[in-house]
Simulated scan of single mutants.
Amino acid sequence: MQKLKFAVIGTGFWANYQIPAWLMLDGVELVALYNRTRSKAEEFARQFAVPHVYDNINELLDRHADELDFVDIITDVDTHALFTDKAAARGLDVICQKPMAPNLETARAMVETCQRAGVRFYIHENFRWQTPLRALKARLDSGIIGRPFKARVSFCSAFPVFDNQPFLAELDQFILTDIGSHTLDVCRFLFGEATSLYSQTTRVNPAIKGEDVAHVLIQMRSGLTCYAEMSYASILEQEAFPQTLVAVEGETGSIVLTHGFELRITTRDAAGKTETRSENAVPMAYPWADPAYAVVHSSIVDCNRNLLADLQGRGQAETTGVDNLETVRLVHAAYDSAARNEVIHL
Protein backbone atom coordinates (compact mmCIF):
# COMPACT_ATOMS: atom_id res chain seq x y z
CA MET A 1 0.00 0.00 0.00
CA GLN A 2 1.30 3.46 -0.90
CA LYS A 3 2.56 5.49 2.03
CA LEU A 4 0.41 8.36 3.27
CA LYS A 5 2.31 11.65 3.44
CA PHE A 6 1.79 14.01 6.34
CA ALA A 7 3.02 17.17 8.00
CA VAL A 8 3.44 17.85 11.69
CA ILE A 9 2.24 21.23 12.91
CA GLY A 10 4.03 22.10 16.13
CA THR A 11 7.39 20.79 17.40
CA GLY A 12 7.05 21.29 21.15
CA PHE A 13 7.26 18.83 24.04
CA TRP A 14 4.86 16.14 22.79
CA ALA A 15 6.30 16.10 19.27
CA ASN A 16 9.33 14.39 20.85
CA TYR A 17 7.13 11.31 21.23
CA GLN A 18 4.42 11.73 18.62
CA ILE A 19 6.89 11.81 15.73
CA PRO A 20 8.92 8.69 16.67
CA ALA A 21 5.63 6.91 17.39
CA TRP A 22 4.53 7.60 13.81
CA LEU A 23 7.87 6.38 12.52
CA MET A 24 7.30 3.00 14.21
CA LEU A 25 4.51 2.34 11.68
CA ASP A 26 4.72 1.30 8.07
CA GLY A 27 2.57 3.27 5.66
CA VAL A 28 3.43 6.88 6.55
CA GLU A 29 6.00 9.41 5.42
CA LEU A 30 6.67 12.67 7.28
CA VAL A 31 7.50 15.31 4.68
CA ALA A 32 7.23 18.68 6.45
CA LEU A 33 7.36 20.37 9.84
CA TYR A 34 5.96 23.68 11.03
CA ASN A 35 6.79 25.60 14.18
CA ARG A 36 6.46 29.31 14.90
CA THR A 37 10.07 29.20 16.16
CA ARG A 38 11.82 27.86 13.09
CA SER A 39 14.96 26.72 14.92
CA LYS A 40 12.93 24.20 16.93
CA ALA A 41 11.49 22.71 13.76
CA GLU A 42 14.96 22.57 12.25
CA GLU A 43 16.22 20.55 15.23
CA PHE A 44 13.45 17.99 14.69
CA ALA A 45 14.10 17.93 10.95
CA ARG A 46 17.74 17.01 11.55
CA GLN A 47 16.83 14.38 14.13
CA PHE A 48 14.15 12.67 12.05
CA ALA A 49 15.41 13.42 8.52
CA VAL A 50 12.41 15.54 7.52
CA PRO A 51 13.08 17.37 4.24
CA HIS A 52 10.99 20.54 4.65
CA VAL A 53 10.73 23.07 7.50
CA TYR A 54 8.49 26.13 7.82
CA ASP A 55 7.64 28.88 10.27
CA ASN A 56 4.71 30.02 8.12
CA ILE A 57 1.80 27.56 8.08
CA ASN A 58 0.24 29.03 4.94
CA GLU A 59 3.48 28.54 3.06
CA LEU A 60 3.71 24.90 4.15
CA LEU A 61 0.13 24.13 3.15
CA ASP A 62 0.28 26.05 -0.13
CA ARG A 63 3.46 24.27 -1.22
CA HIS A 64 2.55 20.75 -0.09
CA ALA A 65 -1.26 20.45 -0.03
CA ASP A 66 -1.27 18.50 -3.29
CA GLU A 67 1.06 15.80 -1.96
CA LEU A 68 -0.11 15.65 1.67
CA ASP A 69 -2.76 13.22 2.88
CA PHE A 70 -3.15 14.55 6.41
CA VAL A 71 -1.71 16.84 9.06
CA ASP A 72 -1.00 16.11 12.72
CA ILE A 73 -1.55 19.18 14.94
CA ILE A 74 0.59 19.12 18.10
CA THR A 75 0.28 22.73 19.25
CA ASP A 76 -1.26 24.63 22.16
CA VAL A 77 -5.02 24.16 22.47
CA ASP A 78 -5.79 27.78 21.58
CA THR A 79 -4.38 27.26 18.07
CA HIS A 80 -6.10 23.95 17.27
CA ALA A 81 -9.12 25.51 15.56
CA LEU A 82 -6.99 27.82 13.40
CA PHE A 83 -4.79 25.02 12.06
CA THR A 84 -7.76 22.69 11.61
CA ASP A 85 -9.56 25.32 9.54
CA LYS A 86 -6.50 25.91 7.35
CA ALA A 87 -5.91 22.20 6.70
CA ALA A 88 -9.58 21.42 6.07
CA ALA A 89 -9.86 24.31 3.61
CA ARG A 90 -7.17 22.60 1.54
CA GLY A 91 -8.93 19.23 1.64
CA LEU A 92 -6.53 17.57 4.11
CA ASP A 93 -7.58 15.09 6.79
CA VAL A 94 -6.78 16.34 10.29
CA ILE A 95 -5.42 14.70 13.43
CA CYS A 96 -5.41 17.00 16.44
CA GLN A 97 -4.02 16.63 19.95
CA LYS A 98 -6.35 16.70 22.91
CA PRO A 99 -7.96 18.72 24.33
CA MET A 100 -9.71 19.43 21.05
CA ALA A 101 -10.48 23.07 21.88
CA PRO A 102 -10.55 25.55 24.77
CA ASN A 103 -14.36 25.43 24.94
CA LEU A 104 -17.28 23.34 23.76
CA GLU A 105 -18.47 25.85 21.16
CA THR A 106 -15.10 25.89 19.39
CA ALA A 107 -14.92 22.09 19.48
CA ARG A 108 -18.34 21.83 17.82
CA ALA A 109 -17.27 24.34 15.19
CA MET A 110 -14.11 22.31 14.40
CA VAL A 111 -16.15 19.17 13.87
CA GLU A 112 -18.60 21.03 11.63
CA THR A 113 -15.80 22.67 9.65
CA CYS A 114 -14.31 19.29 8.78
CA GLN A 115 -17.72 17.84 7.95
CA ARG A 116 -18.48 20.71 5.57
CA ALA A 117 -15.06 20.35 3.94
CA GLY A 118 -15.55 16.59 3.53
CA VAL A 119 -12.35 15.72 5.40
CA ARG A 120 -11.80 13.23 8.18
CA PHE A 121 -11.16 14.62 11.64
CA TYR A 122 -9.56 12.71 14.50
CA ILE A 123 -8.45 13.55 18.04
CA HIS A 124 -5.27 11.93 19.28
CA GLU A 125 -6.76 10.62 22.53
CA ASN A 126 -4.23 7.97 23.47
CA PHE A 127 -5.01 7.09 27.11
CA ARG A 128 -7.70 4.59 26.16
CA TRP A 129 -5.00 2.81 24.11
CA GLN A 130 -2.81 2.08 27.12
CA THR A 131 -2.07 -1.64 27.36
CA PRO A 132 -3.46 -2.14 30.91
CA LEU A 133 -6.67 -0.24 30.09
CA ARG A 134 -7.22 -2.31 26.92
CA ALA A 135 -6.68 -5.47 29.00
CA LEU A 136 -9.17 -4.25 31.61
CA LYS A 137 -11.74 -3.50 28.91
CA ALA A 138 -11.31 -6.97 27.41
CA ARG A 139 -11.90 -8.59 30.80
CA LEU A 140 -15.00 -6.48 31.43
CA ASP A 141 -16.38 -7.34 27.99
CA SER A 142 -15.77 -11.04 28.68
CA GLY A 143 -18.43 -10.89 31.40
CA ILE A 144 -16.13 -12.31 34.04
CA ILE A 145 -17.59 -10.06 36.78
CA GLY A 146 -21.11 -9.89 35.37
CA ARG A 147 -22.86 -6.55 34.99
CA PRO A 148 -20.65 -3.74 36.39
CA PHE A 149 -22.52 -1.37 38.69
CA LYS A 150 -19.80 0.72 40.35
CA ALA A 151 -16.37 2.02 39.32
CA ARG A 152 -13.55 4.30 40.35
CA VAL A 153 -11.09 5.78 37.86
CA SER A 154 -8.12 7.50 39.50
CA PHE A 155 -5.24 9.62 38.23
CA CYS A 156 -3.71 11.08 41.39
CA SER A 157 -0.05 12.00 41.64
CA ALA A 158 2.60 14.37 42.95
CA PHE A 159 4.49 14.24 39.65
CA PRO A 160 6.08 17.68 38.88
CA VAL A 161 4.22 18.09 35.60
CA PHE A 162 4.90 21.84 35.48
CA ASP A 163 8.66 21.27 35.26
CA ASN A 164 8.58 19.99 31.68
CA GLN A 165 5.36 21.73 30.64
CA PRO A 166 5.51 25.11 32.43
CA PHE A 167 2.72 26.60 30.27
CA LEU A 168 0.24 24.39 32.15
CA ALA A 169 0.74 26.53 35.27
CA GLU A 170 -0.62 29.54 33.38
CA LEU A 171 -3.93 27.95 32.37
CA ASP A 172 -7.05 29.35 34.03
CA GLN A 173 -8.53 25.86 33.74
CA PHE A 174 -6.01 23.10 34.23
CA ILE A 175 -6.62 19.58 35.47
CA LEU A 176 -10.03 18.92 33.94
CA THR A 177 -8.88 20.09 30.51
CA ASP A 178 -5.49 18.37 30.78
CA ILE A 179 -5.91 15.08 32.64
CA GLY A 180 -9.71 15.25 32.75
CA SER A 181 -9.84 15.02 28.96
CA HIS A 182 -8.03 11.69 29.29
CA THR A 183 -9.73 10.41 32.44
CA LEU A 184 -13.28 11.16 31.35
CA ASP A 185 -12.57 9.60 27.97
CA VAL A 186 -11.37 6.47 29.78
CA CYS A 187 -14.69 6.43 31.67
CA ARG A 188 -16.56 6.57 28.35
CA PHE A 189 -14.34 3.90 26.81
CA LEU A 190 -14.85 1.50 29.70
CA PHE A 191 -18.47 2.17 30.63
CA GLY A 192 -20.27 3.99 27.82
CA GLU A 193 -22.02 7.34 27.76
CA ALA A 194 -23.07 9.46 30.72
CA THR A 195 -26.48 10.80 31.65
CA SER A 196 -25.47 13.18 34.46
CA LEU A 197 -22.50 14.29 36.54
CA TYR A 198 -21.58 16.27 39.64
CA SER A 199 -18.12 17.83 40.03
CA GLN A 200 -16.00 19.65 42.59
CA THR A 201 -12.58 21.24 41.98
CA THR A 202 -9.90 22.92 44.07
CA ARG A 203 -6.45 24.46 43.74
CA VAL A 204 -3.82 23.22 46.18
CA ASN A 205 -0.65 24.50 44.49
CA PRO A 206 -0.51 28.29 45.06
CA ALA A 207 1.93 28.79 42.17
CA ILE A 208 -0.57 27.88 39.44
CA LYS A 209 -3.67 29.62 38.10
CA GLY A 210 -6.05 26.74 37.52
CA GLU A 211 -7.37 23.83 39.57
CA ASP A 212 -5.09 20.89 40.29
CA VAL A 213 -7.65 18.60 41.95
CA ALA A 214 -11.03 17.48 40.62
CA HIS A 215 -13.67 14.94 41.60
CA VAL A 216 -16.43 13.93 39.19
CA LEU A 217 -19.31 11.60 40.05
CA ILE A 218 -20.87 10.30 36.83
CA GLN A 219 -24.07 8.37 36.22
CA MET A 220 -23.67 6.22 33.13
CA ARG A 221 -26.47 5.27 30.75
CA SER A 222 -25.87 1.61 31.64
CA GLY A 223 -26.83 2.31 35.26
CA LEU A 224 -23.24 2.17 36.51
CA THR A 225 -22.03 4.92 38.83
CA CYS A 226 -18.45 6.03 38.14
CA TYR A 227 -16.28 8.18 40.38
CA ALA A 228 -13.43 9.86 38.51
CA GLU A 229 -10.73 11.54 40.58
CA MET A 230 -7.67 13.42 39.37
CA SER A 231 -4.95 15.32 41.18
CA TYR A 232 -1.43 16.64 40.79
CA ALA A 233 -1.29 17.48 44.51
CA SER A 234 -1.43 13.97 45.99
CA ILE A 235 1.54 12.91 48.10
CA LEU A 236 0.88 9.18 48.43
CA GLU A 237 2.63 6.17 49.90
CA GLN A 238 3.12 4.75 46.40
CA GLU A 239 3.39 7.10 43.43
CA ALA A 240 1.25 5.89 40.54
CA PHE A 241 2.28 8.35 37.81
CA PRO A 242 1.64 8.03 34.93
CA GLN A 243 -0.69 5.09 35.44
CA THR A 244 -4.47 5.35 35.62
CA LEU A 245 -5.79 3.13 38.40
CA VAL A 246 -9.25 1.59 38.10
CA ALA A 247 -11.53 -0.45 40.35
CA VAL A 248 -14.75 -1.98 39.00
CA GLU A 249 -17.40 -3.92 40.92
CA GLY A 250 -19.84 -6.21 39.15
CA GLU A 251 -22.66 -8.54 40.09
CA THR A 252 -20.36 -11.57 40.22
CA GLY A 253 -16.95 -10.11 41.04
CA SER A 254 -14.55 -7.21 40.80
CA ILE A 255 -11.50 -6.12 38.83
CA VAL A 256 -8.79 -3.79 40.11
CA LEU A 257 -6.12 -2.28 37.86
CA THR A 258 -3.43 -1.38 40.34
CA HIS A 259 0.21 -0.26 40.45
CA GLY A 260 2.68 -1.96 38.14
CA PHE A 261 0.06 -2.70 35.46
CA GLU A 262 -1.44 -5.53 37.52
CA LEU A 263 -5.03 -6.67 37.07
CA ARG A 264 -6.51 -8.36 40.16
CA ILE A 265 -9.69 -10.23 39.37
CA THR A 266 -11.90 -11.47 42.21
CA THR A 267 -14.79 -13.87 41.60
CA ARG A 268 -16.94 -16.26 43.65
CA ASP A 269 -17.49 -19.89 42.65
CA ALA A 270 -20.72 -21.89 42.87
CA ALA A 271 -19.86 -22.97 46.41
CA GLY A 272 -19.54 -19.35 47.51
CA LYS A 273 -15.76 -19.35 47.78
CA THR A 274 -14.00 -16.14 46.76
CA GLU A 275 -10.88 -16.36 44.62
CA THR A 276 -8.51 -13.60 43.45
CA ARG A 277 -6.08 -14.08 40.61
CA SER A 278 -3.54 -11.73 39.11
CA GLU A 279 -2.70 -10.85 35.51
CA ASN A 280 -0.06 -8.49 34.16
CA ALA A 281 -0.62 -6.03 31.31
CA VAL A 282 2.84 -4.50 30.81
CA PRO A 283 3.10 -1.98 27.95
CA MET A 284 5.56 -2.25 25.08
CA ALA A 285 8.91 -0.55 25.76
CA TYR A 286 10.33 1.76 23.08
CA PRO A 287 13.87 3.21 23.12
CA TRP A 288 12.63 6.76 22.46
CA ALA A 289 10.05 6.72 25.27
CA ASP A 290 10.68 8.56 28.53
CA PRO A 291 10.64 5.90 31.29
CA ALA A 292 8.57 8.24 33.46
CA TYR A 293 5.85 8.22 30.78
CA ALA A 294 6.36 4.72 29.39
CA VAL A 295 2.75 3.51 29.54
CA VAL A 296 1.57 6.76 27.95
CA HIS A 297 4.20 6.87 25.21
CA SER A 298 3.61 3.28 24.12
CA SER A 299 -0.10 4.06 23.77
CA ILE A 300 0.73 6.79 21.24
CA VAL A 301 1.89 4.10 18.82
CA ASP A 302 -1.33 2.10 19.23
CA CYS A 303 -3.49 5.20 18.88
CA ASN A 304 -1.62 6.20 15.71
CA ARG A 305 -2.01 2.67 14.35
CA ASN A 306 -5.78 2.87 14.83
CA LEU A 307 -6.03 6.27 13.13
CA LEU A 308 -3.82 5.12 10.26
CA ALA A 309 -6.02 2.07 9.66
CA ASP A 310 -9.01 4.38 9.24
CA LEU A 311 -7.08 6.73 6.95
CA GLN A 312 -6.10 3.75 4.81
CA GLY A 313 -9.62 2.33 4.76
CA ARG A 314 -8.59 -0.79 6.71
CA GLY A 315 -10.52 -0.16 9.94
CA GLN A 316 -12.54 2.25 12.00
CA ALA A 317 -10.98 4.92 14.22
CA GLU A 318 -12.22 5.12 17.79
CA THR A 319 -11.30 8.72 18.57
CA THR A 320 -12.93 10.66 15.76
CA GLY A 321 -13.80 14.30 16.28
CA VAL A 322 -17.47 13.36 16.57
CA ASP A 323 -16.72 10.78 19.28
CA ASN A 324 -14.32 13.02 21.20
CA LEU A 325 -16.88 15.82 21.22
CA GLU A 326 -18.73 13.73 23.83
CA THR A 327 -15.62 13.77 26.03
CA VAL A 328 -15.33 17.54 25.57
CA ARG A 329 -18.96 17.83 26.67
CA LEU A 330 -18.13 15.96 29.89
CA VAL A 331 -15.10 18.16 30.62
CA HIS A 332 -17.06 21.39 30.31
CA ALA A 333 -20.11 19.97 32.07
CA ALA A 334 -17.77 19.19 34.97
CA TYR A 335 -16.57 22.80 35.05
CA ASP A 336 -20.19 23.97 34.89
CA SER A 337 -21.18 21.66 37.72
CA ALA A 338 -18.31 22.83 39.94
CA ALA A 339 -19.11 26.48 39.27
CA ARG A 340 -22.83 26.05 40.00
CA ASN A 341 -22.50 23.31 42.63
CA GLU A 342 -25.21 21.41 40.80
CA VAL A 343 -25.82 18.10 39.07
CA ILE A 344 -25.62 18.55 35.30
CA HIS A 345 -27.97 16.42 33.20
CA LEU A 346 -26.54 15.56 29.79
Rank of each mutant, 00 (worst) to 15 (best):
R203H: 08
L197Q: 00
G210F: 03
L217E: 01
A240T: 07
A228I: 07
T266A: 13
T267N: 06
I179A: 10
I208Y: 11
S199N: 03
E193M: 11
E239S: 11
L190V: 10
D290H: 15
G210V: 10
F261A: 15
T274P: 02
F241V: 06
T183I: 13
V295R: 13
A281Y: 05
V186Y: 11
Q243S: 08
G253E: 10
G180D: 02
T252D: 12
L197M: 04
A194G: 12
I265N: 15
E251L: 04
A281F: 06
E249Y: 15
V216T: 03
V186W: 09
A285V: 14
Y293G: 00
A270V: 11
A281L: 08
A271G: 11
T266P: 12
F189P: 01
K273E: 10
T202C: 13
A271E: 09
L245W: 00
W288V: 04
S278C: 11
T195D: 11
Y286P: 02
A270S: 13
A247G: 09
E251M: 04
K273N: 12
V282E: 14
R264V: 10
G223R: 01
P291I: 00
S199L: 01
V248M: 07
V246K: 06
Y286S: 00
Q219I: 03
D290G: 03
A292D: 10
V256C: 13
H215C: 03
E251P: 07
E275F: 02
M284D: 15
S254W: 14
E251D: 14
S222E: 00
L190R: 04
S199A: 04
R277Q: 08
S222Y: 00
D212T: 11
M220V: 06
Q243M: 12
V296R: 14
A240Q: 11
P287C: 03
S181L: 03
V216I: 06
G192M: 08
I255H: 05
G210S: 04
P242K: 06
I218M: 03
G253A: 04
E229S: 06
H215S: 05
A214H: 03
G272S: 07
I208M: 03
P242D: 03
S234I: 00
A294H: 14
R277Y: 10
G192N: 09
A294E: 12
M220N: 04
D185S: 13
K209Y: 04
V246C: 08
I265E: 10
R268P: 06
M230E: 04
E237P: 09
A285W: 14
E193Q: 13
A228M: 03
Q200G: 09
Y198M: 07
